[in-house]
């Protein structure tokens, strides 16, 4: 049964990707991207990667198509006919040859799902067997993410923060000195989406509540800072789409989002410095309290909070920067 679901989902993914190659016009492509994101999230669930599925559902099916739509709203939806002739033949040849070589390469891979594969016997058994005693929380993904490999995670959070800063700087107008501050303060007076607004008013509180649940329950069930951050941001973005940018900017002002993005990284880094001051290596939480396991709990809670704050505010700030590019329409 599992094999069947796996095959169906993967075949649908391939079909979506083929449709993306064939289709012309950017709106259709973006809708297919959203379908693709949802399908890959479902695939991750069948593989037992529930934490990954959370993130992909919010990012792949939600935020990513949305940013593409904003871009297309600015630059226009037309796509020129693809070039034929020599370019097409050359690219096809390159793709087929590379693909064939990669397929030959996969024949050396260990069989799918084998428990004896090198990936399963290296460091993973240690995490699965020891993290219960060392960290004391059931979700191994959170243990590895926030404690064993916290250094990596700090790097990832810094990349996200830097990307947010880059987007704000690239899209800023000269009069705003590199900030995502609101450019058009007028409320759009087009017809309000009444039905969507009513539905949204009911849904959005639950989306935000769910984000907090994912954030603070991430040690016991699937979840954590990254997932909570993207879910929170998608709730905010939904609110912005339904009620207009000025409204959401009154609730969460862009300058506050910029400060919060930096604050999250700061919380993460300072936790590492706290361990240093207590005589342990950077980001080794076990010295933060008398009992090492309790100390790990505290450390993981704090840095997951930092991650959640940064991810939520960076994605919200990116949304502000893109939504700002749209001039208020004539209607």
């Amino acid at each position: 049964m599992e094999v069947l679901i796996d095959i169906v989902l993967l075949s649908l993914l391939v079909a979506t990707a083929v449709a993306l190659v064939m289709v012309r016009g950017l709106i259709a492509s973006i809708m297919l991207t959203s379908v693709y994101g949802l399908l890959s999230a479902s695939f991750f669930v069948t593989m037992g990667a529930v934490d990954v599925a959370f993130t992909e559902a919010a990012v792949g099916a939600g935020v990513s198509p949305l940013l593409l739509l904003f871009t297309v709203a600015v630059i226009g939806r037309k796509e020129r006919a693809p070039e034929g002739g020599a370019v097409l033949v050359k690219s096809l040849l390159l793709v087929v040859v590379t693909g064939a070589l990669l397929i030959v390469g996969t024949l050396d891979m260990p069989p799918f799902g084998s428990p004896d594969a090198p990936a399963q016997t290296h460091v993973a058994p240690y995490y699965l067997q020891q993290s219960g005693a060392e960290i004391g929380i059931p979700n191994v993904v959170t243990s590895v993410l926030a404690s064993y490999r916290a250094y990596d995670t700090l790097g990832e959070v810094l990349v996200i923060f830097t990307a947010g800063v880059a987007v704000i700087l690239i899209l800023a107008s000269s009069s705003h000195r590199g900030s995502a501050r609101l450019r058009n303060a007028t409320v759009p007076d087009g017809s309000p989406h009444t039905i969507l607004q009513v539905v949204g008013k009911i849904l959005i509180p639950f989306i935000l509540l769910f984000a907090f649940y994912v954030q603070f329950h991430g040690e016991y069930g699937p979840g954590g800072g990254f997932q909570a951050g993207v879910i929170f941001a998608s709730g905010v973005i939904l609110y912005g789409l339904l009620f207009g940018l000025p409204t959401v900017c009154r609730v969460l002002p862009p300058p506050v989002m910029e400060v919060l993005a930096a604050l999250g990284v700061l919380i993460f880094g300072l936790t590492g410095v706290m361990s240093l001051l207590n005589g342990a290596p950077f980001l080794d939480y076990s010295v933060l309290a008398d009992d090492p396991v309790t100390a790990q709990h505290i450390g993981i809670m704090v840095i997951e909070l930092g991650v959640g704050i940064t991810v939520a505010s960076v994605i919200t700030a990116i949304y502000y920067a893109f939504a700002n590019q749209l001039e208020p329409g004539p209607n």
Partner: peptide
């Protein structure tokens, strides 16, 4: 759990860098 950790963070980093590309 290890690939899950790597990919989970890679997805969020991916959307942030895609946003830079779109900008």
């Amino acid at each position: 759990p290890l690939p899950h950790v790597l990919i989970l963070t890679a997805i969020v980093v991916g959307i942030a860098t895609t946003a830079v590309g779109l900008a």
